[in-house]
Design a protein around this nucleic acid. Sequence first.
DNA 1: CTGACTGCAAAATCTTTGCAAAGAC
DNA 2: GTCTTTGCAAAGATTTTGCAGTCAG
Lengths: 154, 154
Amino acid sequence: MIDYPTLLQTFKQLLKDNGLKFTNQREVILKMLYEHDDHFTPEALHHLIKDNYPQLNVGIATVYRTLGLLEDNGIINSISFDAKGKKYEFGLKKHHDHLICTRCGKLIEFYDKMIEEQQKLIAKNFHFLMTDHTMNILGICETCQKANKPQEKI
Amino acid sequence: MIDYPTLLQTFKQLLKDNGLKFTNQREVILKMLYEHDDHFTPEALHHLIKDNYPQLNVGIATVYRTLGLLEDNGIINSISFDAKGKKYEFGLKKHHDHLICTRCGKLIEFYDKMIEEQQKLIAKNFHFLMTDHTMNILGICETCQKANKPQEKI
DNA sequence: CTGACTGCAAAATCTTTGCAAAGAC
DNA sequence: GTCTTTGCAAAGATTTTGCAGTCAG
């Protein structure tokens, strides 16, 4: 995976190329997503940053604006799992797919060689030059299954 | 696919089994989703119903409540596409995935048995109760590869 | 009759926007 | 110094909830 100094360099160049400015807020948001191999809602990320960099006093609006910026440039990815918004993860890492719990929103990453191979085959059969793919398996995670064993809501 | 009278019967039984009542509003919402092979936001569905059954005067809250009820029982599915909410579709039909051309935006549906089976296996390994899954293969279609047209956003 | 359902409006969430002050270059 | 960015608060957009009247069984 890309190392942090290189990532930072790339990010700075990207900003420069677009007449944008490199700010502490932008760096901290990038860094948090790089360092944590996890998926964050904008709000969770905001909390995390406030805890780690209280003196910066980052506003939630800046978090949203920076996430949009990073996503537009392919540095992070977002996943929509329900009506309660998106989750973001650092994007420049090994390809993987997701299991998403539709009750608690938990995301689990997985990689399956057979599926990757099969996708290549499908693309080939349709004479498609595959550049990317996403797969989400939606369902109910083990914890939620146990927690809600008796079906109550009709 | 299930025929409407059977679906209605199933729905009524489901309600009865849970001490819930069969109402005109609930039937109309079910019927709309059954009859249209399309994806609706709650708001779009609300409009459609108001246009078709103006005398019922269905409230948006009832649409949300009924969609939740139907989804919880697997009669309809929801898809999250961005932070702006979900779309719903009738759920008791054949699954398919998509190939998407990033140059011309063409969308090709496909179904692959091996991938479907493999997904089940993955869900099982994670003790996930799979309710749905989506797979999109992004790339360049045959036509666009030949045309070698300049890249543009979908 | 009784308890569930409904529409309405208000509240709750989540995200975006306007703006004056602060900051990057 | 100039133009972008920021935090704040207000506005938007979407979804949920409280409640009194209505309706199904």
